[in-house]
Design a protein around this nucleic acid. Structure first.
Lengths: 207, 207
DNA sequence: GTCTATAGTAGGATAGAC
DNA sequence: GTCTATCCTACTATAGAC
């Protein structure tokens, strides 16, 4: 949360955060002990407290810095002069790039945010959720008005559908796997926009 | 896992399991203590061990009995003489009914299965995942062959998309809320099959 | 079927030496 | 910046009385 140092080069602090992030992502925040983190860093658990106040401080710094950057990208798209559909596609693509580039951070958010928001310290996660919801619902409603999106769907349900569908992919997506984030994004966009049915709403089946 | 009793009427055992399931669903398995469960049941933690071997036994029994029933319903649809599209819709609807009727069990599975499968005891969860994958990919490929589904999508990606999208809804769906599982299922089916775009693959925007 | 009492383990965090 | 040593707390599970 706070700017501790100049942070020009990769500090020990940042090294430790990267190690912690990977462990939190793999095992979950509660299921990762400070001893696990210290072991992975090759030091003893007590030494971690020279760098951080607490285990919570670590996950806080990890999530906050990731989200700040992510929202910057979102806002850039939203405030651009792109059309609704282009904005929609850009936000989805940015999200899959985040799953690729910041896999640990996204995994931590998906697995542990529900637990963390119970603490005051992580209230900012809720605020950003709301901001995200407003961005999406606004975009969907504008798209309906402009004839880009179907008018017969509930924007709130569609928002939850898209949000969950995109981010939950962090569970199976592997940054070093054969399937690229780009390819996944294109397939997901195609399904979200056009569906998987070969033809739309067949009235009657012929066979 | 084992049939302890005749189980004709709601036994104390089943009462305790229901209490545990709700707590596991709310707080997560690891974050629920045997003391929490005992407190909620109005007894002391030691007394729980008169009914169950361990905390793991409790979650085991909860998940296994739920999944057994769910798969029975799936297999019934799969082996029916319904068409591909009707089977697809039936499986989605059964899933949302499960989210409604067995909200705790689905939530536990979504939140804790990844952790539980690390233990031999919960290996059956992996087996059922594979079975589910085979059911879905088989159905999707059959649908492509019969012209029901688009041929340009990767069945594996579509399977993951659908599976995650449906089950992750347990995070926000409330069995006692205004939005019924039926309505959610219909909207999700509509998006999955036809997408949210007003028209398919517009070549050029006119406005 | 529940209680009392407790064993045994593991966790987050701290103080001060090096 | 790391180590040694340790405090305090909380957890799962057990043994035997009632």
């Amino acid at each position: 949360m706070s700017t501790q140092q100049q942070a020009v080069k990769t500090s020990r602090r940042e090294e430790l955060l990267a190690i912690a992030a990977e462990l939190f992502a793999q095992r979950g925040f509660r299921n990762t002990t400070v001893r696990d983190i210290a072991d992975a860093a090759g030091i003893l658990s007590g030494s971690l407290y020279h760098h951080f106040d607490s285990k919570e401080s670590m996950v806080d710094e990890i999530l906050d810095s990731f989200q700040t950057e992510l929202f910057r990208k979102y806002e850039e798209v939203v405030s651009s002069d792109l059309g609704v559909r282009a904005k929609f596609e850009a936000i989805i693509r940015i999200s899959f790039e985040a799953i690729h580039d910041n896999h640990s951070e996204v995994a931590i958010y998906q697995n542990d945010a529900a637990y963390l928001v119970e603490f005051d310290r992580f209230g900012y996660l809720n605020e950003r959720n709301l901001r995200m919801r407003r961005i999406w619902v606004g975009l969907l409603e504008e798209g309906v008005r402009s004839g880009t999106f179907r008018p017969d769907l509930d924007a709130e349900v569609v928002y939850r559908f898209i949000r969950d569908t995109v981010w939950v992919a962090v569970r199976w997506y592997r940054p070093d796997g054969d399937l690229s984030a780009h390819d996944v994004a294109e397939q997901y966009l195609s399904i979200l926009l056009d569906g998987i049915a070969a033809r739309r709403r067949p009235i009657k089946k012929s066979g």
